[in-house]
Amino acid sequence: MGLHHYLILSALLFAVGAAGVIVKKNIIAIFLCIELMLNAANLSFVAFSRYLDQVHGQIFVFFVMVVAAAEAAVGLAITITLYRNRRTLNVDDADLMKW
């Protein structure tokens, strides 16, 4: 089991998440894909932490998880507000600030 196994898995997960962010229309689905990307990054951190024998990577994962939790809470609150005002979860319908 080399480091590259974990990095390839991480890259694949990140790619799937990024594709989801681009393809999906439902704002909650996009959120889920962002979580997927954060998770892929975490996997890289832990893999490097293991193979470089440094604990710092895991500390970073810890902080990423905290930020992800905060981001999910605020993001979902924004989603609720969006739905209340627009009656939609489709991101294409929320284009008021689009250039």
Binding site: V66, V67, A69, A70, E71, A73, V74, A77, I78, I80
Partner: peptide
């Protein structure tokens, strides 16, 4: 600092929702 961040997130989520 993360505890402050989470506090801000809680307040923000409550105010928004």
């Amino acid at each position: 600092l993360t505890s402050v961040l989470i506090l801000v997130a809680i307040v923000g989520a409550v105010v928004l929702a």
